[in-house]
Write a protein that binds this DNA or RNA. Structure first.
Lengths: 115, 115
DNA sequence: ATAGTATATAATGATATGCTTATATGACCA
DNA sequence: TGGTCATATAAGCATATCATTATATACTAT
């Protein structure tokens, strides 16, 4: 799939609507620097596991992210082949890094629990 | 207000949520190339005047657009001084031009009605 | 003043969203 | 096989969103 120069307004608005949620936007920013598994997200966000799972499903539905099972864990990653990846990336690039969340996780020993 | 390098996630998600509506996103794209008055939007979108007005209010509330009364008309324009203008512009730049809508309007003689 | 045009606001209703709890699925291990 | 961990799905509920119709406000022109 080749990235196009412009993104159809219908698709763009749908995309932006999905990114227009703080939890999902943060997820995407996190995923832009490394893969995460679901339990890491659960550690980061003060939210139930099903809530996390439902956000990930929405991101998966329009193929913003990919999932890959490794043993009992499922890792999510950015889909850089997405047709609108240029738009997505240009947005994420303008958001502050979320390394702090990851560091906090490690302090709590939660990062390792999945790795 | 100086543009910052990155946009706080809370504000960014709020912004993206507002742009995550096809009508508002199209409005913003239109405004990025020229001012419009409300009746022009009413001509372009198949929607009631109050619906248009309410979308514009949301855009105004977070200062994405400015309004300026000229006689009995109120013209809206992009607020290029917005703190997050770089993010906004980078998004709008990746959307297809909407000159067609404007041309259609002119064909119907509706453009002039406000000008 | 009055009527007409442009726009905003209020009230309302249908649908969408985002969470919760409960339950199902699937992988691993004793 | 049974138990446990990681994740997904289902059902339910509170709130948000987006449209509509009705009404208010503001300017213009006669």
């Amino acid at each position: 799939m080749n990235p196009k120069e412009t993104v159809d307004l219908q698709r763009a608005s749908q995309l932006l609507k999905l990114l227009g949620d703080k939890t999902r936007l943060t997820m995407m920013k996190l995923l832009s620097s490394h893969e995460c598994c679901v339990c890491e997200f659960v550690g980061i966000f003060k939210m139930s596991q099903p809530a996390i799972s439902q956000h990930l499903r929405k991101l998966r539905d329009i193929e913003l992210v990919r999932e890959e099972r490794r043993g009992q864990w499922i890792f999510y990653s950015i889909n850089s082949e997405h047709e609108d990846y240029l738009l997505i990336k240009s947005i994420l690039d303008q958001l502050p890094g979320q390394d702090e969340s990851i560091n906090d996780l490690e302090k709590q020993g939660l990062r390792i629990s999945c790795g």
